[in-house]
């Protein structure tokens, strides 16, 4: 399966990359590992005329686990194999290990996983499949086949790393033509978008690195992934949890889920009140139920949405029970 022709740019600096992007507004993609972009290009999903390969920009490869700093082109393989990450941020390590397959992880990058294209049964199909049904909102069309209307796309956020970085309180350093800035990872995703625009990235803005604050190291974290097979599959649900205790009391508790809606989300309003309390089976169960009550999966992946919703409760409960047990 060949790719349609595009112009390939291989900038050596961030500035150069931003300049190329600025000169082709709306007609470029950044290319990191390629394991998300290239299958989509092969299926003729929104291919662009310009591909800006980022691999030649040294600072994007920065890898300093001790400092909690990870360039956006760090591969998932690097993350899953790193002993410091496994020790300090086990949830991140677990999440990386559960992405797709070892072969995808060899190329797939941290930045690519954070910004992975949302997925839907009606979107991730060949051009002729989509032509047969009528193109959808997310590619060439003007309507949604999942929730019939013309305003919003319901494709599912399918990255595994975002939830585990959300609970670690990660920040992302960005750079655009307007200059550098830093966002909390939580603020990178924009729940008020139309589902197609899902982030607060400016046109041409790049994720340079992800920084994990050192407090994360004092906490225990975990990631649990719902998928039909223990390899290959995107998450039908991903639950990341972080817990640190002071004696019996919760110092910090964070939860985030992915694989359910158009963006990964955390639940500070639910977890915040539990800080300072002692976790019990009952309070964990109650929290899990409330998280379940807040999520709204739709029918656009392999497993039924009601089941994914129900599993949210199970997975949250199990994740917290694990963390409490290990503390």
């Amino acid at each position: 399966m060949h790719l349609e022709p595009f112009e390939l740019h291989q900038p050596a600096t961030l500035d150069e990359a931003l300049q190329v992007a600025a000169s082709h507004p709306g007609d470029f993609d950044y290319l990191a590992g390629g394991t998300d972009l290239l299958p989509n290009y092969k299926m003729r999903l929104n291919p662009r005329g310009h591909v800006i390969a980022l691999g030649g920009i040294p600072e994007l490869h920065a890898f300093a686990p001790e400092a909690g700093t990870f360039g956006s082109l760090v591969t998932l393989r690097q993350i899953e194999r790193d002993p410091v990450i496994a020790r300090d941020y086990p949830g991140l390590s677990e999440a990386a290990r559960q992405v797709a397959t070892p072969l995808v992880r060899a190329s797939g990058s941290l930045g690519g996983n954070l910004l992975v294209e949302t997925r839907c049964f009606f979107f991730n199909q060949s051009a002729s499949w989509r032509e047969a049904l009528g193109y959808c909102l997310k590619a060439e069309g003007d309507r949604c086949h999942v929730v019939p209307q013309k305003e919003r796309c319901y494709a599912t956020f399918s990255g595994d790393l975002a939830p585990s970085l959300l609970v670690l309180g990660a920040e992302v350093d960005l750079v655009s033509f307007q200059g550098p800035r830093t966002l909390a990872l939580d603020d990178l995703y924009d729940p008020r978008g139309d589902g197609i625009r899902r982030t607060r990235l400016l046109p041409g803005e790049l994720v340079v690195r992800v920084r994990v604050p050192p407090e994360g190291r004092k906490s225990r974290s975990t990631y649990r992934k719902l998928r039909v097979r223990p390899a290959f599959d995107f998450p039908e649900l991903g639950v990341a949890a972080l817990l640190s205790l002071e004696g019996q009391r919760v110092r910090s508790l964070r939860l985030a889920v992915g694989g359910l809606e158009t963006y990964p989300r955390s639940f500070p309003t639910l977890t915040g009140p539990l800080e300072g309390t002692t976790l019990t089976d009952e309070s964990i169960a109650e929290l899990a139920r409330r998280v379940q009550g807040m999520v709204r999966p739709v029918h656009n992946t392999f497993l039924a949405p009601d089941y994914r919703k129900r599993m949210t409760e199970v997975f949250v409960r199990r994740a917290l029970a694990d963390l409490r047990g290990a503390s």
Partner: peptide, 27 residues
Amino acid sequence: LSESMDYRGARLMNPSLLDYKILAPQQ
């Protein structure tokens, strides 16, 4: 356990090895 030609109406929803779920070695 997991393989199926997943039809919605006459349309095959999973004509790919990603969505047609052949078991992984761990299974």
